[in-house]
């Protein structure tokens, strides 16, 4: 378990470098941690995410899926938008960590207060209704999630979202940059 805690610490500090390696290591450690259950010394529940808790990840996935729902093409949840946001929360979005922690908790609390269930357990209509009723700080938080969801869904897959370039395929944008399409070789003298 000591190794597990160290692994998590390194992951937090060094998220950009050696990311995939650390992540694989962490998943393995997280798996062990789950098996060991109550032995986890830090007392945190195991989570597949870098920043989010498992419950937060579930709530966020439901919100993102409302922002870009699945229709004839997969929506935000399948595209890995939660993975994208979680990754950025340890990097460029890190100043928004507190906003996510608070915002997701408040949305879940609102769902429980209104329907007696957490947000992810509501049906789609209840979820939309709840989102539309958000006000003040919660509404501002939702605007942030909209922006981040759009980035994760329509942005470059290298950042952990837009799985399989799903949005680019949907829009009909060639996925692989076509090099050499234009007369790239230098014209001959006098040609």
């Amino acid at each position: 378990m000591v190794i597990g805690n160290e692994g998590r610490y390194v992951l937090a500090l060094d998220h950009l470098k050696l990311h995939s390696l650390r992540r694989r290591g962490f998943l393995r450690i997280a798996g062990t941690a789950t098996a060991c259950g109550a032995l986890i010394s830090c007392g945190r529940q195991s989570t597949p995410w870098r920043f989010l808790t498992a419950a937060e990840g579930r709530t966020l996935a439901a919100i993102c899926e409302q922002i870009i729902p699945t229709d004839q093409t997969p929506g935000a949840a399948w595209a890995g938008v939660v993975n994208f946001i979680d990754r950025q929360l340890m990097g460029p979005y890190r100043r928004q960590q507190a906003a996510y922690r608070t915002g997701l908790r408040e949305i879940d609390q609102a769902a429980v207060a209104k329907f007696g269930k957490d947000f992810a357990s509501l049906d789609a209509q209840q979820q939309t209704g709840l989102i539309e009723s958000l006000a003040g700080g919660q509404k501002r938080f939702f605007s942030t999630v909209i922006a981040h969801t759009m980035q994760g869904y329509y942005g470059d897959p290298r950042h952990g979202g837009n799985r399989d370039a799903v949005s680019w395929r949907m829009l009909g944008v060639p996925v692989i940059p076509i090099r050499g399409r234009y007369r790239y070789e230098l014209p001959k003298q006098g040609a």
Binding site: Q151, L171, G172
Partner: peptide
């Protein structure tokens, strides 16, 4: 690039949800 089109909405198109996705799909190209 696709992400840059996300905010290019005409009045009346919602900023999120099915209608937004439809708008992207239909008009990006």
């Amino acid at each position: 690039l696709p992400y840059q089109f996300v905010g290019a909405l005409p009045p009346g198109v919602p900023q999120w949800g099915r209608a937004h996705k439809d708008f992207m799909r239909q008009w990006y190209r």
